[in-house]
């Protein structure tokens, strides 16, 4: 073995070590905040926000003192039962489910048309969608409020659902459009020659092949509705609040009362579904991110 290849090998081993260390650091940076908060949510406030030592949060000194056990579900009880967080959870479930289903329904139709039409206006619709996609949501909300008050539709879940579906459309159209482009045109054309109308070809032949794309896009629609703060915070009345605005309203009222742990518990509760989502749909999320990138 010659000297240069020894050097090259040693250098690549250093490189591997550096990369591994770098990745482990990143892993900690990415994951630790979540693990820490989940752990801390089962403590009392004087442990999680300890004035004495951060170790208290680890061992739960005050938690043991106040509740008799190293872990407590007080935060969760307080948030879910005392402060009616469960209602926000139900609202979130309704909103995200409706938004995802409606977005996908009208988005697949539109995305299919955009992918299969060679006309110029299809291109312009896509460009318009790109501009719409860039609009900060809060600026749109400032356009909604006054008309919605006047029409008396402010505060309802249905209003927020429709608004979120619309805000979601540009992104949904782009993503589904690029998924549809990857399905050969021959497929729907042979279906039409075989005797289908355009819609039948879409429904019977294209959609069965499109499921992976639809699921991926659905995940992103879900995330948009689930993560939204601007729209739901401004357009929902107190009773109809979803999780995220509810948590933000906790901050205003609870911090003074010394019940930050309610907010911590609520935050962990709201993170759990996202955690599960990544666990089960990791591949789809990755493919969705890259589908937009590679073709867009």
């Amino acid at each position: 073995m010659s000297g240069t290849s020894m050097i090259a090998r040693r250098r690549s081993r250093t490189l591997a070590t550096v990369s591994t260390l770098f990745l482990i650091t990143w892993l900690i940076v990415a994951a630790f905040p979540f693990l820490w908060t989940v752990w801390g949510s089962f403590k009392v406030e004087s442990d999680f926000f300890s004035r004495e030592s951060w170790l208290n949060a680890l061992f739960g000194v005050y938690t043991e003192m106040q509740t008799g056990a190293p872990f407590t579900g007080d935060g969760y009880y307080g948030a879910w039962i005392t402060r009616d967080f469960w209602r926000a959870v139900v609202n979130t479930a309704i909103v995200t489910l409706c938004v995802t289903v409606i977005s996908l329904t009208i988005g697949t139709l539109g995305g299919y048309a955009l992918a299969r039409s060679g006309h110029r206006y299809a291109f312009w619709i896509l460009i318009a969608a790109l501009v719409f996609r860039a609009m900060p949501h809060i600026t749109l909300v400032s356009g909604y409020l006054l008309p919605f008050f006047e029409l008396n539709i402010w505060g309802h879940l249905a209003t927020s659902i429709v608004v979120l579906v619309a805000i979601n459309q540009p992104f949904t159209l782009w993503m589904l459009h690029s998924f549809f482009l990857s399905i050969p045109k021959d497929l729907d054309e042979s279906a039409m020659v075989d005797g289908c109308t355009r819609f039948q070809a879409f429904r019977w032949v294209v959609i069965p092949v499109m499921w992976p794309g639809v699921i991926t896009t659905g995940l992103f629609s879900f995330l948009l509705a689930y993560n939204d703060f601007a729209v739901t915070a401004m357009l929902l009345s107190q009773d109809n609040q979803t999780m995220v605005p509810k948590i933000s309203s906790f901050l205003g009222s609870i911090q003074e009362q010394g019940n930050v742990m309610f907010a911590v518990a609520a935050v962990v509760s709201a993170t759990a579904p996202l955690f599960l989502l990544v666990m089960f749909f990791q591949r789809q999320i990755v493919s969705g991110l890259t589908a937009g990138a590679v073709k867009g």
């Binding site: 021959d186 497929l187 054309e189 042979s190 020659v193 075989d194 069965p208 092949v209």
Partner: peptide, 13 residues
């Protein structure tokens, strides 16, 4: 009419 496509256009499902 019926048609045979270059890439066949078979329904994969």
């Amino acid at each position: 009419i019926s048609m045979v496509f270059q890439s066949y256009g078979l329904y994969p499902n």
